[in-house]
Design a protein around this nucleic acid. Structure first.
Length: 263
DNA sequence: ATGGCCAATATGATTGGA
């Protein structure tokens, strides 16, 4: 089973690229972020025509997450538990039946948190606390759990081309990285880091200042795996070439291969 | 040359992104 995550920065603007990439990479499950459209406007028919079932959770203007699946999606649940007053569309989870039981997957768009002196940063940290609590509960189920998305976290200095430029930023602050470590320390594996020693692996390059041409990037889109999912991990990749396509998202797809079959 | 963008929104500056 091939599972991917991609912050598309508007599903409507990216429909052509998404179609080309799906045909090229042939993923079975895809988590999308920043779809930036309400549910009624989601291009469901276009994506279904490509052979995918679709679950989405959107809102007007910004945020928005989705899961595409070649297999039936079960127990689709929008929203991260823990705060009924949070109306941002940043989380959706679903399940797929496999030869080994249930594979549970979540599409995550973790808050950016900048500027850090505003309420946005405490919101990010609270959101991460909720994600930690959710993960603790889900890990008890001992399923193959795959938490995909744009985490807006640069985990280490090896995950950024120019670390000095990011000191004090909400994506790289020690408190942010500490909380991300608290999440992975629950027993999650960073799939890309587990399968590659390569330096300079990035998933985002700013639109400004020729960042991509200089490989001035950061690695903030992650696939985190539960112990049972990690047992099935066979490989991963970052589709950097997609960043050079016409009208690109500022993020590129990240994918993993698991030795698990849908049933 | 050390700065350069993009998407959505009742369309023209603002908000949000990272």
């Amino acid at each position: 089973m091939r599972i991917a995550t991609w912050n598309v920065n508007s599903i409507k603007q990216r429909l052509e690229s998404l179609t080309a990439w799906l045909k090229e990479r042939q993923p079975d499950l895809v988590c999308l972020q920043e779809t930036k459209c309400v549910d009624d406007a989601f291009p469901r028919l276009e994506i279904e025509a490509l052979g995918y079932n679709v679950a989405f959770h959107g809102q007007k203007s910004f945020n928005g997450v989705a899961i595409l699946s070649r297999f039936p999606l079960e127990d689709v649940t929008p929203g991260l538990p823990g705060d009924d007053t949070d109306d941002h569309a940043r989380f959706i989870e679903a399940c797929v039946s496999t030869n080994r039981g249930v594979l549970r997957i979540a599409s995550i768009y973790l808050p950016n948190g900048n500027p850090v002196e505003t309420e946005k940063y405490p919101y990010k940290l609270r959101w991460m606390d909720r994600l930690i609590k959710y993960t603790q509960e889900r890990l008890k189920l001992e399923e193959e759990l795959v938490l995909c998305g744009d985490y807006n976290v640069i985990p280490t200095p090896e995950d950024v081309h120019n670390p000095a430029a990011w000191i004090g930023d909400a994506l790289f602050k020690p408190q942010t990285r500490e909380k991300f470590r608290s999440l992975t320390a629950l027993g999650l594996t960073d799939a890309v880091r587990a399968t590659s020693d390569a330096p300079g692996l990035y998933t985002f390059w700013d639109y400004q200042a020729g960042a991509f041409q200089k490989n001035n990037g950061i690695r903030i889109d992650h696939v985190l795996l539960s112990p049972r999912a990690t047992d099935r991990l066979r490989g991963s990749g970052i589709d950097k070439h997609v960043r050079a396509w016409e009208k690109p998202s500022d993020h590129v797809p990240v994918w993993v291969d698991l030795d698990t079959e849908a049933r």
